Computed example of a mutant assay.
Amino acid sequence: MTTAIPLRENSRPLTETRVKNAKPNPRPYKLVEPGGLFLLVQPSGTKLWRYRFKLNGIEGLLALGRYPDTTLKRARELHQDARKLVADGINPVHHRQGEKLQTNLSTFGNLAASWRLVTDGRLRPATIKQRERELKNDLLPKFQSRPVASITRAELAAHLTNVEKRAPETARNLRTHLDAIFEHAIDVGLLTANPTPPRRVLATRRSTHHLSLPSERMGNFLRALDASRINPETRIAMLMVLLTACRKNEVIGAEWKEFDLKGKSWTIPAARMKAKQEHWVPLSEQAVELLQELRKDTDGKHLHLFPNRVDPTRPMANRSLNAVLERLGYGGESTPHGMRAAFSTHFNKLGASVDVIEHCLAHAPVNRVRAAYNRHAYHDERRSMLQAWADYLDHQRNEL
Protein backbone atom coordinates (compact mmCIF):
# COMPACT_ATOMS: atom_id res chain seq x y z
CA MET A 1 0.00 0.00 0.00
CA THR A 2 1.45 3.38 -1.01
CA THR A 3 1.64 6.02 1.72
CA ALA A 4 0.75 9.53 0.62
CA ILE A 5 3.51 12.08 1.01
CA PRO A 6 2.21 15.11 2.93
CA LEU A 7 2.36 18.57 1.38
CA ARG A 8 3.55 21.70 3.04
CA GLU A 9 1.64 24.48 1.36
CA ASN A 10 3.52 27.77 1.01
CA SER A 11 1.82 31.13 1.34
CA ARG A 12 4.72 32.66 -0.55
CA PRO A 13 7.23 31.40 -3.15
CA LEU A 14 10.11 29.29 -1.91
CA THR A 15 13.41 30.95 -1.12
CA GLU A 16 16.93 29.54 -1.08
CA THR A 17 16.93 29.97 2.70
CA ARG A 18 13.71 27.97 3.17
CA VAL A 19 14.94 25.26 0.87
CA LYS A 20 18.33 25.12 2.57
CA ASN A 21 16.84 25.03 6.07
CA ALA A 22 14.16 22.41 5.32
CA LYS A 23 14.75 19.65 7.89
CA PRO A 24 14.04 15.95 7.33
CA ASN A 25 11.03 14.33 9.00
CA PRO A 26 10.38 10.65 9.76
CA ARG A 27 8.23 10.66 6.59
CA PRO A 28 9.02 12.34 3.26
CA TYR A 29 7.23 15.63 2.57
CA LYS A 30 6.96 18.23 -0.18
CA LEU A 31 7.50 21.97 -0.36
CA VAL A 32 5.41 23.12 -3.29
CA GLU A 33 5.30 26.05 -5.66
CA PRO A 34 2.59 26.92 -8.19
CA GLY A 35 2.65 25.12 -11.53
CA GLY A 36 3.61 21.67 -10.30
CA LEU A 37 7.17 22.32 -9.09
CA PHE A 38 8.03 20.91 -5.65
CA LEU A 39 10.95 19.93 -3.45
CA LEU A 40 10.74 16.41 -2.05
CA VAL A 41 12.50 16.19 1.32
CA GLN A 42 13.43 12.62 2.21
CA PRO A 43 13.90 11.25 5.78
CA SER A 44 17.58 10.82 4.90
CA GLY A 45 17.88 14.57 4.33
CA THR A 46 18.12 14.25 0.53
CA LYS A 47 16.24 17.02 -1.28
CA LEU A 48 14.95 16.34 -4.80
CA TRP A 49 13.33 18.73 -7.29
CA ARG A 50 10.30 17.30 -9.05
CA TYR A 51 7.72 18.57 -11.56
CA ARG A 52 4.28 16.97 -11.55
CA PHE A 53 2.37 17.53 -14.81
CA LYS A 54 -0.72 16.27 -16.60
CA LEU A 55 -0.83 15.56 -20.34
CA ASN A 56 -3.88 14.15 -22.15
CA GLY A 57 -5.47 13.44 -18.78
CA ILE A 58 -2.51 11.36 -17.57
CA GLU A 59 -0.21 12.47 -14.75
CA GLY A 60 3.55 12.37 -15.11
CA LEU A 61 6.55 13.16 -12.92
CA LEU A 62 9.82 14.70 -14.14
CA ALA A 63 13.01 14.72 -12.05
CA LEU A 64 14.74 18.11 -12.18
CA GLY A 65 17.79 17.43 -10.03
CA ARG A 66 19.07 17.25 -6.47
CA TYR A 67 19.50 20.21 -4.16
CA PRO A 68 22.00 21.89 -3.66
CA ASP A 69 23.56 20.77 -6.97
CA THR A 70 20.46 22.16 -8.62
CA THR A 71 19.65 25.51 -7.06
CA LEU A 72 16.16 26.94 -6.65
CA LYS A 73 16.83 29.31 -9.54
CA ARG A 74 17.98 26.49 -11.82
CA ALA A 75 15.05 24.28 -10.80
CA ARG A 76 12.65 27.07 -11.79
CA GLU A 77 14.36 27.43 -15.18
CA LEU A 78 14.10 23.68 -15.83
CA HIS A 79 10.50 23.77 -14.63
CA GLN A 80 9.59 26.53 -17.08
CA ASP A 81 11.24 24.66 -19.98
CA ALA A 82 9.28 21.53 -19.11
CA ARG A 83 5.99 23.47 -18.81
CA LYS A 84 6.50 24.83 -22.33
CA LEU A 85 6.88 21.28 -23.64
CA VAL A 86 3.66 20.21 -21.90
CA ALA A 87 1.87 23.25 -23.34
CA ASP A 88 2.96 22.06 -26.80
CA GLY A 89 1.62 18.57 -26.11
CA ILE A 90 5.08 17.02 -25.58
CA ASN A 91 5.81 14.69 -22.67
CA PRO A 92 8.95 16.16 -21.01
CA VAL A 93 10.03 12.74 -19.71
CA HIS A 94 9.97 11.27 -23.23
CA HIS A 95 11.64 14.40 -24.59
CA ARG A 96 14.54 13.98 -22.17
CA GLN A 97 14.88 10.29 -23.00
CA GLY A 98 15.03 11.22 -26.67
CA GLU A 99 17.73 13.82 -26.04
CA LYS A 100 19.84 11.30 -24.14
CA LEU A 101 19.51 8.77 -26.93
CA GLN A 102 20.38 11.34 -29.58
CA THR A 103 23.70 11.98 -27.85
CA ASN A 104 24.68 8.33 -28.22
CA LEU A 105 22.99 6.68 -31.19
CA SER A 106 26.11 4.89 -32.35
CA THR A 107 24.95 1.49 -31.06
CA PHE A 108 22.07 -0.47 -32.57
CA GLY A 109 20.28 -0.75 -29.21
CA ASN A 110 20.17 3.02 -28.72
CA LEU A 111 19.20 3.60 -32.34
CA ALA A 112 16.30 1.13 -32.02
CA ALA A 113 15.16 2.81 -28.78
CA SER A 114 15.26 6.24 -30.46
CA TRP A 115 13.23 4.89 -33.39
CA ARG A 116 10.63 3.51 -31.00
CA LEU A 117 10.30 6.84 -29.20
CA VAL A 118 9.54 8.48 -32.53
CA THR A 119 7.10 5.85 -33.83
CA ASP A 120 5.42 4.02 -30.93
CA GLY A 121 2.93 6.82 -30.32
CA ARG A 122 1.23 6.15 -33.66
CA LEU A 123 0.64 2.45 -32.97
CA ARG A 124 -1.94 0.39 -31.14
CA PRO A 125 -0.82 -1.11 -27.78
CA ALA A 126 -0.96 -4.65 -29.17
CA THR A 127 1.29 -3.68 -32.09
CA ILE A 128 3.78 -2.00 -29.74
CA LYS A 129 3.95 -5.14 -27.57
CA GLN A 130 4.49 -7.38 -30.60
CA ARG A 131 7.24 -5.15 -31.97
CA GLU A 132 8.91 -4.94 -28.56
CA ARG A 133 8.82 -8.73 -28.22
CA GLU A 134 10.31 -9.32 -31.69
CA LEU A 135 13.12 -6.84 -31.09
CA LYS A 136 13.89 -8.29 -27.67
CA ASN A 137 13.89 -11.90 -28.83
CA ASP A 138 15.53 -11.74 -32.24
CA LEU A 139 17.42 -8.48 -32.85
CA LEU A 140 18.74 -6.97 -29.64
CA PRO A 141 20.51 -10.11 -28.33
CA LYS A 142 22.69 -10.14 -31.45
CA PHE A 143 23.05 -6.47 -32.36
CA GLN A 144 22.32 -4.35 -29.27
CA SER A 145 25.92 -3.33 -28.49
CA ARG A 146 27.12 -3.27 -32.07
CA PRO A 147 28.13 0.07 -33.63
CA VAL A 148 25.47 0.82 -36.22
CA ALA A 149 28.03 1.57 -38.94
CA SER A 150 29.62 -1.87 -38.54
CA ILE A 151 26.45 -3.87 -39.32
CA THR A 152 26.49 -5.25 -42.86
CA ARG A 153 23.79 -6.31 -45.27
CA ALA A 154 25.30 -9.80 -45.52
CA GLU A 155 25.09 -10.52 -41.79
CA LEU A 156 21.55 -9.12 -41.59
CA ALA A 157 20.52 -11.39 -44.45
CA ALA A 158 22.11 -14.40 -42.74
CA HIS A 159 20.37 -13.58 -39.46
CA LEU A 160 16.97 -13.19 -41.11
CA THR A 161 17.24 -16.49 -42.96
CA ASN A 162 18.13 -18.24 -39.69
CA VAL A 163 15.05 -16.79 -37.99
CA GLU A 164 12.95 -17.73 -41.03
CA LYS A 165 13.71 -21.44 -40.50
CA ARG A 166 11.68 -21.45 -37.29
CA ALA A 167 9.38 -18.41 -37.69
CA PRO A 168 8.85 -17.16 -41.27
CA GLU A 169 6.34 -14.46 -40.32
CA THR A 170 8.61 -13.14 -37.57
CA ALA A 171 11.50 -12.94 -40.03
CA ARG A 172 9.39 -10.82 -42.38
CA ASN A 173 8.42 -8.54 -39.49
CA LEU A 174 12.07 -8.22 -38.42
CA ARG A 175 13.09 -7.17 -41.90
CA THR A 176 10.41 -4.45 -41.80
CA HIS A 177 11.70 -3.27 -38.41
CA LEU A 178 15.31 -3.20 -39.62
CA ASP A 179 14.40 -1.21 -42.70
CA ALA A 180 12.62 1.41 -40.58
CA ILE A 181 15.38 1.53 -37.93
CA PHE A 182 18.12 2.12 -40.49
CA GLU A 183 15.98 4.71 -42.29
CA HIS A 184 15.81 6.46 -38.92
CA ALA A 185 19.61 6.28 -38.76
CA ILE A 186 19.75 8.10 -42.10
CA ASP A 187 17.23 10.69 -40.90
CA VAL A 188 19.38 11.57 -37.85
CA GLY A 189 22.57 11.71 -39.92
CA LEU A 190 24.16 8.54 -38.58
CA LEU A 191 24.25 6.67 -41.90
CA THR A 192 24.05 7.55 -45.59
CA ALA A 193 22.85 4.14 -46.83
CA ASN A 194 20.40 1.52 -45.52
CA PRO A 195 22.03 -1.94 -45.09
CA THR A 196 18.71 -3.80 -44.78
CA PRO A 197 18.64 -6.71 -47.27
CA PRO A 198 15.90 -6.77 -49.94
CA ARG A 199 12.69 -8.76 -49.48
CA ARG A 200 13.90 -11.44 -51.85
CA VAL A 201 16.23 -12.87 -49.18
CA LEU A 202 13.11 -14.33 -47.57
CA ALA A 203 10.67 -16.77 -49.10
CA THR A 204 7.47 -15.29 -50.51
CA ARG A 205 4.54 -15.62 -48.16
CA ARG A 206 2.24 -18.41 -49.27
CA SER A 207 -1.42 -17.55 -49.42
CA THR A 208 -3.49 -19.66 -47.07
CA HIS A 209 -7.24 -20.03 -47.28
CA HIS A 210 -9.30 -20.26 -44.14
CA LEU A 211 -11.32 -23.44 -43.75
CA SER A 212 -14.93 -22.77 -44.67
CA LEU A 213 -17.97 -24.78 -43.67
CA PRO A 214 -19.90 -26.07 -46.73
CA SER A 215 -23.46 -24.77 -46.97
CA GLU A 216 -24.88 -28.28 -46.53
CA ARG A 217 -23.16 -28.45 -43.10
CA MET A 218 -24.32 -25.02 -41.93
CA GLY A 219 -27.63 -26.25 -40.52
CA ASN A 220 -25.91 -28.97 -38.48
CA PHE A 221 -23.48 -26.43 -37.08
CA LEU A 222 -26.20 -23.96 -36.10
CA ARG A 223 -28.25 -26.67 -34.38
CA ALA A 224 -25.17 -27.83 -32.49
CA LEU A 225 -24.42 -24.24 -31.46
CA ASP A 226 -27.99 -23.67 -30.24
CA ALA A 227 -28.00 -26.92 -28.26
CA SER A 228 -24.61 -26.37 -26.62
CA ARG A 229 -23.95 -25.11 -23.10
CA ILE A 230 -21.60 -22.44 -24.39
CA ASN A 231 -21.73 -19.06 -22.65
CA PRO A 232 -24.67 -17.11 -24.18
CA GLU A 233 -22.50 -14.09 -25.00
CA THR A 234 -19.99 -16.30 -26.84
CA ARG A 235 -22.84 -17.96 -28.76
CA ILE A 236 -24.16 -14.55 -29.84
CA ALA A 237 -20.67 -13.45 -30.88
CA MET A 238 -20.38 -16.50 -33.16
CA LEU A 239 -23.81 -15.83 -34.65
CA MET A 240 -22.89 -12.18 -35.24
CA VAL A 241 -19.84 -13.29 -37.21
CA LEU A 242 -22.17 -15.36 -39.37
CA LEU A 243 -24.96 -12.80 -39.72
CA THR A 244 -22.80 -9.77 -40.51
CA ALA A 245 -20.07 -11.43 -42.63
CA CYS A 246 -17.58 -9.37 -40.61
CA ARG A 247 -14.14 -10.45 -39.45
CA LYS A 248 -13.80 -12.09 -36.05
CA ASN A 249 -11.76 -9.21 -34.59
CA GLU A 250 -14.33 -6.68 -35.77
CA VAL A 251 -17.10 -8.55 -33.95
CA ILE A 252 -15.38 -9.39 -30.67
CA GLY A 253 -14.00 -5.85 -30.40
CA ALA A 254 -17.39 -4.21 -31.08
CA GLU A 255 -18.50 -1.43 -28.74
CA TRP A 256 -22.10 -0.50 -27.99
CA LYS A 257 -21.60 3.09 -29.15
CA GLU A 258 -21.01 1.80 -32.71
CA PHE A 259 -24.58 0.49 -33.02
CA ASP A 260 -27.87 2.12 -33.99
CA LEU A 261 -30.41 -0.57 -33.19
CA LYS A 262 -33.36 1.60 -34.18
CA GLY A 263 -31.75 2.27 -37.54
CA LYS A 264 -30.63 -1.37 -37.74
CA SER A 265 -27.02 -0.50 -38.55
CA TRP A 266 -23.51 -0.89 -37.21
CA THR A 267 -20.70 1.52 -38.12
CA ILE A 268 -17.23 0.14 -37.47
CA PRO A 269 -14.65 2.95 -37.11
CA ALA A 270 -11.70 3.03 -39.48
CA ALA A 271 -9.23 2.35 -36.67
CA ARG A 272 -10.71 -1.13 -36.17
CA MET A 273 -10.87 -2.07 -39.85
CA LYS A 274 -8.18 -3.95 -41.76
CA ALA A 275 -8.25 -1.41 -44.60
CA LYS A 276 -8.43 1.51 -42.12
CA GLN A 277 -11.69 2.72 -43.69
CA GLU A 278 -15.00 3.07 -41.86
CA HIS A 279 -17.36 0.19 -42.62
CA TRP A 280 -21.18 0.41 -42.52
CA VAL A 281 -23.00 -2.85 -41.76
CA PRO A 282 -26.79 -3.16 -42.21
CA LEU A 283 -28.24 -5.40 -39.52
CA SER A 284 -30.77 -8.08 -40.34
CA GLU A 285 -33.86 -8.56 -38.18
CA GLN A 286 -32.18 -11.61 -36.65
CA ALA A 287 -29.02 -9.65 -35.79
CA VAL A 288 -31.02 -6.85 -34.14
CA GLU A 289 -32.96 -9.40 -32.11
CA LEU A 290 -29.73 -11.00 -30.89
CA LEU A 291 -28.27 -7.62 -29.91
CA GLN A 292 -31.43 -6.66 -28.03
CA GLU A 293 -31.23 -9.98 -26.18
CA LEU A 294 -27.56 -9.34 -25.39
CA ARG A 295 -28.21 -5.82 -24.13
CA LYS A 296 -31.08 -7.04 -21.95
CA ASP A 297 -28.94 -9.79 -20.41
CA THR A 298 -25.89 -7.56 -19.81
CA ASP A 299 -27.69 -4.23 -19.21
CA GLY A 300 -25.20 -2.77 -21.68
CA LYS A 301 -23.04 -1.95 -18.66
CA HIS A 302 -19.73 -2.71 -20.40
CA LEU A 303 -18.00 -0.80 -23.16
CA HIS A 304 -17.74 -3.91 -25.33
CA LEU A 305 -20.56 -6.18 -26.44
CA PHE A 306 -18.43 -9.18 -25.59
CA PRO A 307 -16.21 -8.26 -22.61
CA ASN A 308 -13.31 -10.39 -21.45
CA ARG A 309 -14.21 -12.56 -18.46
CA VAL A 310 -10.97 -11.76 -16.63
CA ASP A 311 -10.79 -8.05 -17.47
CA PRO A 312 -14.21 -6.63 -18.53
CA THR A 313 -12.55 -3.45 -19.83
CA ARG A 314 -11.05 -5.53 -22.67
CA PRO A 315 -12.87 -7.49 -25.39
CA MET A 316 -13.32 -11.24 -25.50
CA ALA A 317 -10.16 -13.35 -25.91
CA ASN A 318 -9.08 -13.72 -29.53
CA ARG A 319 -9.32 -17.53 -29.60
CA SER A 320 -12.72 -17.81 -27.93
CA LEU A 321 -14.65 -18.37 -31.17
CA ASN A 322 -12.05 -20.78 -32.54
CA ALA A 323 -12.46 -22.74 -29.30
CA VAL A 324 -16.23 -22.87 -29.88
CA LEU A 325 -15.73 -24.51 -33.28
CA GLU A 326 -13.28 -27.01 -31.79
CA ARG A 327 -15.58 -27.81 -28.88
CA LEU A 328 -18.50 -28.50 -31.22
CA GLY A 329 -16.35 -30.72 -33.45
CA TYR A 330 -16.02 -28.29 -36.36
CA GLY A 331 -12.42 -27.19 -35.75
CA GLY A 332 -11.17 -29.18 -38.71
CA GLU A 333 -13.91 -27.90 -41.03
CA SER A 334 -14.02 -24.15 -40.50
CA THR A 335 -12.58 -21.10 -38.80
CA PRO A 336 -14.52 -17.98 -37.73
CA HIS A 337 -12.96 -16.17 -40.68
CA GLY A 338 -14.08 -19.00 -42.95
CA MET A 339 -17.70 -18.03 -42.27
CA ARG A 340 -17.11 -15.02 -44.52
CA ALA A 341 -16.09 -17.38 -47.30
CA ALA A 342 -19.32 -19.33 -46.80
CA PHE A 343 -21.28 -16.09 -47.24
CA SER A 344 -19.34 -15.16 -50.39
CA THR A 345 -19.61 -18.66 -51.89
CA HIS A 346 -23.37 -18.78 -51.31
CA PHE A 347 -24.12 -15.53 -53.13
CA ASN A 348 -21.59 -16.06 -55.89
CA LYS A 349 -23.29 -19.39 -56.64
CA LEU A 350 -26.58 -17.52 -56.91
CA GLY A 351 -25.04 -15.08 -59.39
CA ALA A 352 -25.46 -12.09 -57.08
CA SER A 353 -23.67 -8.79 -57.75
CA VAL A 354 -19.95 -9.13 -57.01
CA ASP A 355 -19.82 -5.45 -56.06
CA VAL A 356 -22.49 -5.91 -53.40
CA ILE A 357 -20.79 -9.04 -52.04
CA GLU A 358 -17.42 -7.29 -51.82
CA HIS A 359 -18.94 -4.24 -50.14
CA CYS A 360 -20.52 -6.51 -47.53
CA LEU A 361 -17.11 -8.07 -46.92
CA ALA A 362 -15.39 -4.64 -46.75
CA HIS A 363 -12.99 -5.71 -49.50
CA ALA A 364 -11.07 -3.14 -51.52
CA PRO A 365 -12.16 -3.27 -55.20
CA VAL A 366 -9.82 -5.30 -57.41
CA ASN A 367 -10.46 -3.05 -60.41
CA ARG A 368 -9.18 0.30 -59.16
CA VAL A 369 -10.06 2.14 -62.33
CA ARG A 370 -13.68 1.04 -62.09
CA ALA A 371 -13.70 1.78 -58.37
CA ALA A 372 -12.58 5.33 -59.05
CA TYR A 373 -15.75 5.94 -61.08
CA ASN A 374 -18.17 3.74 -59.17
CA ARG A 375 -18.89 5.58 -55.92
CA HIS A 376 -22.19 3.79 -55.22
CA ALA A 377 -22.22 2.32 -51.70
CA TYR A 378 -24.99 -0.23 -52.39
CA HIS A 379 -26.69 0.43 -49.03
CA ASP A 380 -30.10 -0.93 -50.04
CA GLU A 381 -28.60 -3.90 -51.89
CA ARG A 382 -26.35 -4.79 -48.97
CA ARG A 383 -29.25 -4.63 -46.53
CA SER A 384 -31.29 -6.95 -48.74
CA MET A 385 -28.36 -9.35 -49.15
CA LEU A 386 -27.59 -9.63 -45.45
CA GLN A 387 -31.29 -10.11 -44.65
CA ALA A 388 -31.48 -12.84 -47.29
CA TRP A 389 -28.38 -14.46 -45.75
CA ALA A 390 -29.95 -14.41 -42.26
CA ASP A 391 -33.15 -15.95 -43.64
CA TYR A 392 -31.10 -18.63 -45.43
CA LEU A 393 -29.31 -19.52 -42.18
CA ASP A 394 -32.65 -19.83 -40.39
CA HIS A 395 -33.91 -22.09 -43.16
CA GLN A 396 -30.80 -24.28 -42.87
CA ARG A 397 -31.17 -24.42 -39.07
CA ASN A 398 -34.80 -25.51 -39.29
CA GLU A 399 -34.40 -28.01 -42.13
CA LEU A 400 -33.98 -31.51 -40.70
Score class of each variant (00 low, 15 high):
243 L>I: 11
352 A>E: 13
333 E>S: 13
231 N>D: 15
118 V>M: 10
163 V>H: 00
262 K>F: 13
315 P>D: 07
33 E>Q: 04
114 S>C: 05
89 G>I: 02
381 E>Y: 07
97 Q>H: 15
290 L>A: 10
385 M>D: 05
3 T>S: 05
135 L>T: 00
388 A>R: 05
7 L>P: 14
139 L>P: 06
100 K>A: 11
329 G>Y: 12
261 L>N: 07
339 M>C: 14
131 R>I: 09
29 Y>G: 03
381 E>M: 04
68 P>F: 12
373 Y>V: 02
16 E>T: 14
107 T>A: 12
61 L>Q: 04
303 L>M: 10
140 L>E: 11
245 A>S: 14
93 V>C: 15
261 L>K: 08
302 H>V: 05
246 C>G: 10
190 L>I: 09
250 E>Q: 06
36 G>N: 11
195 P>C: 00
387 Q>T: 03
376 H>P: 02
130 Q>C: 04
291 L>N: 03
345 T>E: 04
382 R>P: 06
211 L>H: 09
89 G>K: 01
333 E>Q: 13
8 R>M: 10
372 A>Y: 10
162 N>Q: 15
18 R>M: 15
352 A>F: 13
261 L>E: 04
162 N>S: 13
51 Y>S: 03
36 G>A: 12
193 A>N: 09
394 D>L: 12
93 V>W: 15
128 I>M: 03
29 Y>M: 04
20 K>D: 11
55 L>H: 09
339 M>Y: 12
244 T>W: 12
300 G>K: 05
355 D>W: 06
218 M>S: 10
131 R>S: 11
176 T>W: 07
122 R>A: 14
334 S>W: 10
325 L>V: 04
260 D>F: 13
164 E>M: 08
295 R>D: 12
183 E>Y: 03
303 L>F: 07
73 K>R: 14
108 F>N: 05
288 V>F: 14
7 L>N: 14
58 I>G: 01
93 V>A: 15
99 E>D: 10
163 V>E: 00
337 H>A: 05
278 E>V: 11
294 L>A: 01
395 H>M: 09
313 T>A: 09
349 K>A: 15
152 T>R: 14
28 P>N: 05
96 R>L: 13
142 K>G: 02
257 K>M: 03
9 E>I: 07
379 H>T: 10
43 P>S: 01
182 F>N: 01
69 D>V: 07
274 K>P: 04
321 L>V: 13
214 P>K: 03
76 R>K: 12
266 W>N: 03
236 I>S: 07
327 R>N: 15
118 V>L: 13
104 N>C: 13
143 F>S: 01
98 G>Q: 14
355 D>C: 04
361 L>W: 08
359 H>Y: 05
43 P>F: 08
97 Q>F: 13
288 V>D: 06
296 K>W: 10
8 R>V: 14
201 V>P: 03
216 E>R: 05
328 L>G: 02
366 V>A: 14
162 N>C: 04
320 S>Q: 11
366 V>R: 13
67 Y>Q: 00
146 R>K: 12
59 E>D: 03
13 P>V: 09
257 K>H: 09
89 G>Q: 02
196 T>K: 00
290 L>Q: 11
71 T>R: 00
69 D>C: 03
239 L>N: 09
124 R>Y: 07
164 E>F: 14
321 L>E: 06
